[in-house]
Amino acid sequence: MPLTQNDLDAILLTLKLASLTTLLLLLIGTPIAWWLARTASWLKRPIGAIVALPLVLPPTVLGFYLLVSMGPNGFFGQLTQSLGLGTFTFTFTGLVIGSLFYSLPFTVQPLQNAFEAIGRAPLEAAATLRAGPWDSFFSVVVPLARPGFITAAVLSFAHTVGEFGVVLMIGGNIPGKTQVVSVQIYNHVETMEYAQAHWLAGGMLAFAFIVLLALYSGRAGKLRAW
């Protein structure tokens, strides 16, 4: 058995983290993307830039700020403590929160592109056919933006799986709790267990390749460069 129990735990935890993050991101990212796609507000650019920040920031920077704010003296930490929830640093919840920020652009940007590509016309047709705003969103926008939703889900999932810096900063390295595959690979390398590192790293490589291959085949190369 090339994989230890720790490795298997790390894989399961990674999949759990990525699934939960993707689900939450679709819920959070959809209204943000919709707003960004339709608004004429001057806030569009600043908000768009904030959403895109994790694309260019070193994950350690994002992780550092999250660590500080979620810690016992941080604003968010104080809030969670006063609600009797303790602090989220070095917990799975903290990892999920970190991943939400980290992968947000990978949800919002494909969705925003998909929504913008739909344009006003189908929505106007829906309105003249008695569909209210919510109705037309679910009966027209969601089906038309389906490729965007698929891209957003796959990219968010894959990107969360590949997370390292943020996890290390706010989650640490607690087996079964915050120890994800990327961190486990790091552990193996630190302890010179190259064979095990190979198994996990090779698995990640294959996973990443399959995801991208599926995306490119499914969308016939429509995927954005990022």
Partner: peptide, 11 residues
């Protein structure tokens, strides 16, 4: 409302 280009739902 009849649109200039019909504007049918493509899906």
């Amino acid at each position: 409302y009849v649109f200039q280009d019909a504007n049918l739902f493509p899906h």
